[in-house]
Amino acid sequence: MTKIFKALETMGAVVVFAMEVVRSTLSRPFFGNELIRMMWLLIIRCLIPVGLAVAPVGAVISLQGLEIFRMFGLDRMLSSLLGTAIFREYSPALASVMVAAQAGSSIAARIGTMRVRGQIDALAVMSVDPMRYVVVPGVIACAVVTPLLNVLTNFLGLFSGWVFAVPLGGVDHGAFIEHLTAQVTPADLWVGLGKCCLFGTSVGLIAGFLGMRVSGGAEAVGKAANDTVVATIVLILLVDYIVSYVLLGVGV
């Protein structure tokens, strides 16, 4: 019973924290330089892990999908499966998971370290709101950078899928491109980007929340970084499923 109350309390605290972040974002002062620095940092740090994580997925879908589709002589259709799967599901989900693992955990660790060293309190003493200076740039940077990275990984995933389907798998190039352009709609792309934006925001929020709650020593910092990743991965998969289900019902 205590566990349930604890969980409810945490959820409530997250909501309060999110409100606070929104309020801090919409009112002045706004630390633009910090935001740009943060975004740049995220892009540089996440580019390689995100690219490396998503690129093989396209190849694996081609590899396994080709075997299945070939049983029915439908290997020309492979690209429509590949396109929808990459654009809608795997690129947004995996890119967000990697952003959570790389950026989310390091944001949480950074805020947690600042907390442990008393730097957060020092900021507050200097009447710089730590919420505005430390948390808000992280949240906005994650929300903006994740969709940007997703655009890149869409192409990477598609390209690696193409490599395994056309030169290595023996599918006709014209048929591959034709089914891709005919079956994959801009809606698929927008769904993916929307998801990324949502996931990115939640990565930033959870990282900020858990980082600010750190108390104690080095161990608590590691735990906050770890919990951020675990919580966001669960959230990403949960939201992913709900979105697919709703979209299937709506028929998009």
Binding site: S106, V116, G222
Partner: peptide
């Protein structure tokens, strides 16, 4: 304390 955070972060990302 920062070292613990960095180690965790790298372990997750490189492992995945």
């Amino acid at each position: 304390a920062e070292g613990v955070g960095i180690a965790t972060n790298r372990a997750i990302v490189h492992g995945a």
